[in-house]
Design a protein around this nucleic acid. Sequence first.
DNA 1: ACGTTTGTGGTACGTTCGTATCATAAAGAC
DNA 2: GTCTTTATGATACGAACGTACCACAAACGT
Lengths: 200, 200
Amino acid sequence: MPKRVDHAERRTEIAQALVRAAGRLGLHAVGMRDVAAEAGVSLRVVQYYFESKEKLLLFGLQYLAGRFGERVANRVRAAGDNPGPRAVIEALLTAALPVDEESRLFHHLYTSYAVLSVTDEALAAQPFIKDPDTAEITLTGLLQQANDAGLLEAGTDTRTEAVGLLAMSAGLGTSVLVGQRDAESAMAVLRYHLDRIFRS
Amino acid sequence: MPKRVDHAERRTEIAQALVRAAGRLGLHAVGMRDVAAEAGVSLRVVQYYFESKEKLLLFGLQYLAGRFGERVANRVRAAGDNPGPRAVIEALLTAALPVDEESRLFHHLYTSYAVLSVTDEALAAQPFIKDPDTAEITLTGLLQQANDAGLLEAGTDTRTEAVGLLAMSAGLGTSVLVGQRDAESAMAVLRYHLDRIFRS
DNA sequence: ACGTTTGTGGTACGTTCGTATCATAAAGAC
DNA sequence: GTCTTTATGATACGAACGTACCACAAACGT
């Protein structure tokens, strides 16, 4: 057989090609041939490593989620050396904002998948529920930690606050994505709201 | 010629069919034949009233925006008789949440259009920027009004607060749409945040 | 009344899509 | 040294897409 190939690696390369092509054409418009061309392989190879387009799309979503998780973790770790949890929280919330090309791509495709999941039950079963839930738990924990340290305003419901902040971050991200607002002002809005939560 | 037809009315009927079909199949998957079948007319008729699919999609977006505007206006008017601006603000923010089938459809398709506009410049030129901007101005005005009446906490930046609340409402709407959260809890989050802004 | 315009049915064309099929070369297994 | 397995090239197929074209019947203008 021709030089044995690492399937996992190959699949990842193709998934990266899918993500790039989808960023350029839109996830709805990308076909197997586009992915093949973007990856520099033949259509047959894409078919070989993913039996169907649906399998490819599902793997693409997993790949995307993994990459995004890494990005958030990096951001949080970079801010982790700072004195308080405020910096960590800010890093967590701004990680989802489309500030550079990579995060723009994340937001664009993640939203695309979310829209598709409304009418595609195979996608609806994917980690759209789980992943945001862990973000919610993490942020709630950070806020609770800040609250226990007496850093927050009195009467703060950390759970509700976390849900609201994450939704706000997602909403701001979308408005940045469609060009209604620039990334700078979106971050300013988030910082303002954190200022209202944290004790002055 | 066969019984003269009101073009505007006909186009609206077809746009309604587009919206229904898109709600069922997803905007990306709906074709001219689906729209024709949903409207109970032949493919030729859809072609006749909209020369191309792109024109149909653009008109569908306009139709959707118009309908949504009416809905918000109705909600706000219904709450307008109440004593304070708090009720009006709450009505404005919850109007976008997918609480019933109609608003679910709104949110689903509006988000679909937003995603498409990232890679489709014809859609990018549409009122994605203008419409949210007017909502922002309206909400800022309402908050300012409340602030002038001494109803808000001290040091509130009404503009930034409005932007944040609208983004939060949109983000919550999406999470409801994908089934991560139910409409009731989303409204509770919004109310909590309004409680934090309004003086107790 | 006649000619022109308007609305609509039917259908065909060229593309593109996802998928399936056939062939074949290279590298293991024994 | 066979013989099987693996990876990939090339291509073909049926379906569905948006669009274009042709025909025709019904009502208006004059």
